[in-house]
């Protein structure tokens, strides 16, 4: 897959890296000389120019690209890049600069398929780090639905039971199980739950606290686990 990313700054360049690590082709568009050099030194194809101009975007082979990420710090440029890319049939992802705008762009900007607010994702990572090792919020799927990874501890009530014996609250699904350091996998009902195992659970926000006391054994408020 080919992806075009406008902006090779701290968000754009990192996104390009993770796309490349997943085996995708990436073309970056950047106008700042030092950012161009940094991206080229990292081995990326960089088109020097203004990503909000049609002629620059056209040289990025938009016809072949699967999607365009407009990831600069400039809201206007990001929006224009998405409009042009949409015209060329690309899926578009736009970075915004303030969280209240997420709703506005989702609703009104028909040329923008996805809206990204990097600070929100950073806040989720920081929250996970602050909460400590046993619980990791992966994503807010919907307003009341959260995807959470739990690590089973020595004091976890479910330790030693098999997956088929695990009884989760209503509106909750076990999606994946990983033995110790092994990669996560589809849950096998016969597997035993040991300390260090990981469980990925989709849960309604209201049941998170119950899930947590069953799986991890801690009590207390889980408010901090919610969305940001």
């Amino acid at each position: 897959m080919l992806y075009v990313i406008v902006g090779a700054g701290r968000v754009g360049l990192r996104t390009a890296r993770v796309l490349r690590e997943s085996g995708h082709d990436v073309t970056l568009i950047e106008r700042d000389e030092s950012a161009i050099e940094r991206a080229r030194a990292a081995g990326f194809d960089v088109i020097a120019g203004d990503g909000a101009l049609e002629e620059t975007l056209e040289s990025a082979n938009l016809a072949e690209a699967d999607a365009l990420g407009a990831l600069t710090g400039d809201l206007n440029n990001n929006f224009v890049a998405c409009m042009i890319a949409k015209e060329h049939g690309c899926r578009t992802v736009m970075r915004i600069d303030e969280d209240y705008r997420e709703e506005i762009y989702r609703r009104y900007a028909s040329d923008v398929d996805e809206v990204i607010y990097p600070e929100r994702l950073g806040a989720i990572a920081a929250k996970n780090a602050l909460l400590g090792g046993n619980i990791r919020a992966i994503a807010d799927i919907a307003q009341h639905l959260q995807l959470v990874e739990f690590t089973i501890t020595d004091s976890a009530p479910i330790k030693g039971y098999s997956l088929s014996e695990l009884e989760l609250p209503a509106n909750t699904r076990l999606l994946a199980h990983g033995k110790g350091d092994a990669p996560l996998d589809i849950p096998d009902p016969d597997e035993t739950l040991d300390a260090g195992d990981h469980l990925v659970i989709l849960a309604d926000f209201d049941t998170l606290s119950d899930v947590r006391s069953i799986v991890v054994g801690e009590s207390g408020p889980t408010k901090a686990l919610g969305g940001v």
């Binding site: 303030e98 209240y100 705008r101 997420e102 506005i104």
Partner: peptide, 8 residues
């Protein structure tokens, strides 16, 4: 400039 998503 707003500080709400309630643009409507």
């Amino acid at each position: 400039k707003a500080h709400t998503g309630d643009a409507d």
